[in-house]
């Protein structure tokens, strides 16, 4: 049971990183990114490509970050010519194109078969210690990401992001370069997502295109919306809550005597139903955005 809880906690931390990354884009800069999963995928494929070429994990994380920054730059470039809603659709399209590319190009990282056998980050440690060390790393990464996001968004830079989100014309009239602000935000968010992907790849020990389906993006969106868009703590709480709810769906299934194939459907219902309920009854999420004065959370 302890190992199961450690596994759930690791996944919650990794999704927490993704949720923080998306929250920085959507909650603060107003960038409606529907291609978030591909930034995560850059991290996983960085690890997979480095492993395939017998390069170490340092090369893996470096590759993942470089890929993610390139994709983020491409997203930002698209944003110069497209309105916010069209840009959101374009990011979804780019993410799907890259997923299909990863699925069909075997030379890249095994194509549809993916890459297996990626070593655990703490594989040489005995059984209870390895996962615990991974959990420690994930918690440290999450705290570092939270601190970074907090520092960024409580500074003048954060004020500029919120201004760009609420009043882009006013932001430009105060001399802010909106295109540069968007690019910087996307790049910071891309690094966070790639870090999550890299650790995920070394934890699950397998990377494949099935991990990049767009439903993953909408799961991260649900975490941000349920937790509270525009609040870092809310984004983390949303991720932890959703992950633990997901983990306990099989127990509910057993208690109700439902067949196993209902588990996936129950999880989807949980995402869709939760999202809908919060959009209707509590749009600000569990921990709302702090408006005015100094921010906490």
């Amino acid at each position: 049971m302890v190992e199961f809880l450690v596994h759930v906690a690791i996944m919650a931390c990794l999704y927490g990183l993704l949720s923080l990354s998306l929250n920085l884009q959507v909650g603060f800069a107003g960038l409606v990114n529907f291609g978030q999963v591909i930034l995560f995928g850059c991290g996983t494929y960085g690890a997979a490509i480095a492993f395939s070429h017998q390069l170490g994990p340092v090369a893996g994380i470096a590759l993942g970050i470089v890929f993610a920054v390139i994709v983020a730059a491409a997203f930002a470039r698209l944003g110069r010519n497209l309105g916010a809603d069209y840009w959101g659709i374009a990011t979804l399209a780019v993410a799907e194109v890259l997923r299909i590319l990863a699925n069909n190009e075997a030379w890249l990282a095994g194509g549809a078969q993916g890459v297996g056998g990626i070593p655990l980050l703490f594989g040489d440690m005995p059984r209870p210690m390895g996962p615990l060390m991974t959990l420690g790393l994930c918690v440290a990464l999450l705290l570092a990401a939270w601190w970074l996001c907090q520092r960024l968004t409580t500074s003048r830079y954060g004020l500029a992001l919120k201004l760009m989100r609420e009043e882009p014309q006013l932001a430009a009239s105060l001399g802010y370069d909106l295109a540069a602000l968007k690019t910087q935000t996307l790049m910071v968010a891309a690094v966070l997502a790639a870090a999550s992907g890299f650790v995920f790849a070394h934890y699950i020990t397998f990377v494949g295109p099935d991990q990049l389906v767009s439903s993953e993006t909408f799961l991260i969106w649900a975490m941000v919306i349920i937790g509270g868009s525009g609040n870092h703590l809310g984004a983390i709480v949303g991720a932890i809550l959703m992950q633990f709810l997901f983990a306990f769906v099989p127990f509910v299934k057993d208690a109700l005597g439902l067949p196993s194939e209902h588990v996936a459907a129950m999880r989807l219902t949980l995402v869709g139903g939760g999202l809908l309920a919060f959009l209707i009854w509590r749009t600000q999420g569990l921990i709302p955005e702090h408006v005015g004065g100094k921010q906490n959370g």
């Binding site: 009043e167 006013l170 430009a172 009239s173 105060l174 001399g175 370069d177 005015g292």
Partner: peptide
């Protein structure tokens, strides 16, 4: 020429229509 460049080079000042001061 982008708006921010004109602003930063002291070429232009722009006051938008909405109530645009920061109350806090």
């Amino acid at each position: 020429v982008p708006v921010h460049d004109k602003i930063r080079h002291h070429l232009m000042g722009f006051v938008p229509q909405t109530d645009n001061v920061f109350s806090t």
